[in-house]
């Protein structure tokens, strides 16, 4: 497994643990009420599990297993940019509302996520090719 895939997948596992923890706290609170404040975890729960866990794991595995150019994986800086932007975006969009940060943080997070998708496409597009091409 290449180094960047390790980074993607370890980050995805951290978001899985955090997202499950937030979800478990909210579900527990739904059955046995502790404090209504726990509902503020909902945006982070969704952001962490949809993008931080699921999407990030898929991207990390894609970087690992998509067809290569000999032993090279093509435009690696674009893939590293996707990693940085995705994680910046998930943190800003997920934790911003939790900390009652100004709406700008949430918007910047979502823009960073768009940037990560573009960077991923720039990296992965040429690797989607027939064998030997």
């Amino acid at each position: 497994m290449p180094r960047l895939s390790c980074w993607f997948i370890r980050a995805a596992l951290i978001y899985l643990a955090a997202g499950f923890t937030f979800g478990a706290l909210m579900l527990f609170n739904k059955g046995v009420p502790l404090t209504p404040a726990l509902w503020r975890l909902l945006p982070a729960h969704m952001e962490f599990l949809l993008l931080g866990w699921t999407a990030q794991l898929a991207i990390g595995v894609a970087f690992w297993i998509l067809p290569r150019f000999g032993s090279a994986r093509g435009n690696e800086p674009a893939a590293w940019a996707a990693f940085a932007l995705l994680n910046a975006g998930v943190l800003l969009a997920g934790i911003g509302p939790l900390l009652a940060a100004p709406p700008l943080f949430f918007a910047l997070g979502r823009l960073a996520e768009v940037g990560s998708a573009v960077a991923l496409a720039v990296h992965a597009w040429p690797r989607i090719k027939p064998p030997g091409a």
Partner: peptide
């Protein structure tokens, strides 16, 4: 039956 959800939360976590 709230304990069902508390137990569900603990198990999934």
């Amino acid at each position: 039956l709230g304990w069902l959800l508390a137990l569900a939360a603990l198990c999934q976590w």
